[in-house]
């Protein structure tokens, strides 16, 4: 478990922390997809959930490696957000020429399971499960 500042510039720290957990038994493709999902989730938390927060408000990340799959949890202090509803509104295929709107779709594509739930201390937890 590690805390990162709500600062878009902290992405390199998030990525290098994640890289330390890489293990040879995890297929490279899966690892790279999870790395991308983590980056999208972190920047979403900073740019949307913590939009009006000071950088001192932290984003907490936990990565759990299990024999068959891994779990990534990201906690933020943003307002409740209905991820499932939002995902239903994301078109099946993002227009290839569109500039934005890819972050959530990427998360949805990569994850085997994806949820965003209200937890303790007015926090939200994004959970992403990915099988190897």
């Amino acid at each position: 478990m590690r805390q990162f500042p709500s600062d878009i510039n902290a992405l390199d720290k998030v990525l290098s922390w994640f890289e330390e957990m890489n293990r040879p038994f995890i297929p490279q493709k899966v690892w790279l997809q999870c790395q991308l999902a983590l980056a999208e989730a972190f920047t979403n938390a900073v740019r949307h959930a913590h939009k009006n927060c000071s950088p001192d408000v932290t984003v907490e990340i936990e990565v759990t490696l299990l024999p068959q799959y891994l779990e990534i949890r990201i906690w933020d202090f943003g307002l409740p957000f209905d991820l499932e509803k939002q995902l239903k509104n994301v078109p099946e295929t993002v227009n290839e020429k569109a500039e934005g709107g890819r972050g959530l779709r990427i998360l949805h594509q990569i994850a085997d399971e994806l949820s965003y739930t209200r937890t303790d201390r007015n926090r939200n937890c994004l959970l992403l499960v990915k099988h190897y």
Partner: peptide
């Protein structure tokens, strides 16, 4: 070393 969806968005916009 790494590109996310924002980087890709810029690339797509530039392509147009």
């Amino acid at each position: 070393t790494f590109m996310d969806s924002s980087g890709l968005g810029a690339l797509v916009l530039a392509l147009k």
